[in-house]
């Protein structure tokens, strides 16, 4: 067998998974969160179906609180690649005035992300949804299958998952059931950045350090991306050199002070980093089994 490098093996594995899913789905969709993992997943999907295009649209669940740069990037990429992009927002949540400040991170995430995702999947009757989650992100994700079966109510049953020996994925399902498919299951944060660098994959500029307007709130560095974020007594907006390790809703995403303005810098910084990437995610920081609970309820 030819000697394949670590990243070449991961790339081949992901392409295999994407093709397997597309071939066995009736109506697949790729969840596109605009982040670095989504960028890599999309890049792999483009490779998997060359010279054709991926036989599925992209779906972005827009909470209306994403960084503006993310939205610009999303629309530009979909256009450049000539792919269909579906944007879904939970209008009920918007009408109910759900937002990360007044409602709290948990309710906001439940309504505007988890519920919104379920709405979109039901609306378009997608039966196979690709997600860019990686097993190294979080403990309960470490036990997630590559092809993760969800009930018609979109629930994940951690105790009743199908074994996935070799790469013989069982993609059969009953009416109403659906799959979440994770082609990047075996990638780590480092792998993702190395691959982005080597393959020259465009990512949202927020990953690179730049002077940005920052409010210090409860120990996190929150970027004031628009006027919806109001200052509390004693707070002020400072311009700081920061970057983001993960991207989500801007009021819930902590920046890190950094001068890493290039991919080389980011990779260098990651080597010496002592905190995990999800530390910036406010929603993960509830109870120990927080993510497990959210996943059972249908969070990606």
């Amino acid at each position: 067998m030819k000697h394949m490098t670590h990243l070449q093996r991961l790339e081949a594995e992901s392409i295999f998974i994407i093709r397997e899913a597309a071939a066995s789905a009736e109506n697949p969709v790729m969840l596109y969160s605009i982040g670095k993992d989504s960028a890599v997943m999309l890049h792999l999907a483009m490779k998997a179906f060359k010279p054709g295009k991926p036989p599925f649209p992209l779906l972005h669940v827009d909470t209306t609180w994403k960084f503006r740069e993310m939205i610009e990037f999303r629309d530009r990429r979909a256009k450049e690649l000539g792919l269909d992009l579906i944007v879904h927002t939970n209008q009920e949540g918007v009408r109910a005035g759900i937002n990360p400040f007044a409602s709290g991170s948990r309710v906001h995430t439940d309504v505007m992300k988890t519920e919104a995702l379920k709405q979109a999947l039901d609306k378009y009757k997608f039966d196979m949804a690709f997600g860019g989650a990686r097993r190294d992100e979080e403990k309960s994700r470490a036990k997630e299958r590559v092809f993760s079966l969800r009930t018609p109510e979109h629930r994940w049953d951690a105790k009743n998952q199908r074994p996935e020996p070799w790469r013989l994925f069982n993609t059969r399902k009953k009416k109403g059931e659906s799959f979440r498919v994770f082609p990047l299951s075996n990638w780590t944060e480092q792998d993702v950045w190395h691959y982005i660098a080597i393959e020259n994959i465009p990512v949202v500029p927020l990953y690179f350090a730049a002077p940005r307007p920052i409010i210090r709130r409860d120990g996190a560095l929150i970027m004031k991306d628009d006027d919806r974020m109001e200052l509390k007594p004693g707070e002020s907006v400072e311009t700081m050199m920061v970057r983001f390790r993960t991207l989500g809703c801007y009021p819930l995403t902590g920046a890190v002070e950094s001068s890493a303005a290039s991919l080389d810098d980011i990779i260098g910084e990651m080597r010496s980093s002592r905190v995990s990437e999800r530390q910036g995610r406010v929603i993960d920081q509830d109870s120990g089994a927080s993510m497990e609970e959210k996943k059972q309820e249908g969070y990606f």
Binding site: S103, D136, D218, D286, M291
Partner: peptide
């Protein structure tokens, strides 16, 4: 505040570093 219930993060993201 959305981020008042802050504890130290609780996760086992074990791959990097």
């Amino acid at each position: 505040s959305p981020i008042t219930a802050r504890r130290l993060p609780d996760e086992a993201d074990l791959a990097q570093g």
